[in-house]
Design a protein around this nucleic acid. Structure first.
Lengths: 211, 211
DNA sequence: CTGAACATGTAAAAGGTTACATGATTTT
DNA sequence: AAAATCATGTAACCTTTTACATGTTCAG
């Protein structure tokens, strides 16, 4: 049970703790902010998983010797926040093992797209509504991502800071690229619906999407 | 319990049946092929849901009077296939109601991205591997999508065929657009990792991604 | 005749989300 | 003093996935 059996949520916890120690609340916040749109972490899983990880000896309470230096606006916890967790040696090893294994295939559940697929009979207005809603969602996602500047506010005193911030930048770029592509799709999609509404569309004779 | 309470899978079933009648097996195949990459439908859910939908009077066995016309390579069921289901009037109404309601927010679980985010310490090779794997996945997804021609092989005799095939085209375009964007990201990402590996990267002083 | 594809189901387990419940601390 | 934020947890529910189990039909 030492290394391979953890739940996806548990691995995420280890990952975030590998950047620096935090408590449960901070953990969920970090996850929410930085990977929320492609990796949900809910309280319901978080605390039980923390307990399990601690029992397995993969994480432990941080003695937090790092009260050093400037208690700047970012670096220091104000007076007393709850006990942060940190990775143990074994936790670190487990994390590295996980990172080396090939990732699970990505899973997407996009009800909006499904509705769109079936909306031929529902009419162009319904389609436009789905597209508009999607645009709004993507726009929001993109704006949230743009507020992220990879790595800022890393606690100064605490070590363990990754040598580079390349990874964070790559992930950020991924988000932005896909958001932009999806916005572009929204434009074309709206156009196509509009065109279709007008000339009543001659559609090619034989085709196939579902069989 | 008539209309609003169905599971996501059940709505998908209704959606596909609204295009034309099919049996469970065909249903799963259609779902797999056309929306598999953004909407999973597994056998474990499928048959129980079919039963429930039938009990609720939203679907019923198709009397299949449509043995008419050419028994071409595509149109006709060869000799005897299993009983197909079709939408009832109430099923159709329920479906339309669902289509009008705003969709659930899309949910993504992308372990590859999470691993990438934590792979700074794992090194450039690990990163490149993650990117390469992603490229392969996306490429496959794109190729599968390209084989789809919206609407072909719709059973000729059966009516209920949507007036347009616009919806299928939009969904297809969505898939292709996003695949291409992701492939472009793979290119840049690989480049960035390579650059980083070389000059040892001067990275800007203060930043922030997770806090 | 043999293997592939067709076809339908069940049971168990895993996992996640939501809602509920509670209390401390900090800010207004 | 009240409200917001911090903080930790539990329990029920809901779904999906996976594995198992079985039988038929069709093509080579």
């Amino acid at each position: 049970m030492t290394s391979a059996d953890l739940t996806p949520t548990a691995w995420t916890i280890l990952g975030f703790l590998s950047l620096h120690p935090r408590n449960g609340y901070q953990l969920r916040q970090a996850a929410q902010r930085s990977v929320g749109h492609f990796w949900g972490v809910s309280y319901g899983q978080l605390y039980p998983q923390l307990k399990l990880l601690a029992e397995d000896g993969l994480i432990e309470p941080d003695p937090e010797p790092a009260a050093a230096g400037a208690a700047g606006p970012a670096g220091g916890r104000s007076s007393r926040s709850a006990a942060p967790w940190r990775l143990t040696q074994r936790g670190n090893e487990a994390l590295r093992g996980w990172l080396r294994r090939p990732p699970e295939p990505r899973q997407l559940r996009d009800e909006g797209l499904v509705k769109l697929l079936f909306s031929d009979e529902a009419g162009p207005t319904a389609m436009l509504e789905l597209i508009a809603r999607r645009r709004a969602d993507v726009l929001l996602r993109k704006e949230l991502a743009e507020q992220i500047v990879p790595g800022a506010h890393w606690p100064k005193a605490t070590d363990r800071r990754p040598q580079s911030l390349l990874a964070a930048r790559l992930v950020l770029a991924h988000t932005l690229t896909l958001c932009e592509a999806e916005l572009a799709w929204c434009d074309t999609a709206e156009q196509l619906v509009a065109e279709h509404r007008g000339p009543l569309a001659d559609h090619p004779p034989e085709l196939r999407h579902d069989a």
